[in-house]
Amino acid sequence: MSFQLNSASGVPAYLQLVQQIKQALRMGVLKVGDKLPTVKEVVAEVAINPNTVMKAYWELEHEGLVEGRQGVGTFVSRRPDGPPPGTQARLARSLEKWVLTARQEGLDEESIEALLRSILRSSWIEGVA
């Protein structure tokens, strides 16, 4: 499990860690029973504030996804709600194919993101109506 932080996003660093761990759980990269890296290991790897890592782990514990065991470490206790990893992987593959087609048609990353955002927005409005 390795982390990446985007500082321009305006999303607090601890939430970025929470989101990345949840995504790893959805994708099956992390499984129930797996041990998360210790705070010190994360700090040593990516040079971030230890309180940020602790805050992320507390948040995950609060949501019931991980469990801290005194003196042993933090372990995954359940997956987030949603379809199983297989579904995620299948959807990821079809999206990859779509992105490839979009690139071949000449869309750059920015227009792909803009298109995805607008579709998400309009399908949300339809879903509400």
């Binding site: 500082s7 660093a13 700090v43 040593a44 990516v46 971030i48 504030n49 230890p50 309180n51 940020t52």
Partner: peptide, 27 residues
């Protein structure tokens, strides 16, 4: 520096112009 903070009861104040570094390390 961050490992030393992880090790225990240590508060830090550091001045810098490099905001990207600071955002990772500071809370």
């Amino acid at each position: 520096l961050t490992e030393a903070v992880a090790d225990g009861d240590l508060s830090v104040m550091l001045s810098s112009h490099l905001l990207h570094d600071l955002e990772r390390v500071c809370d």
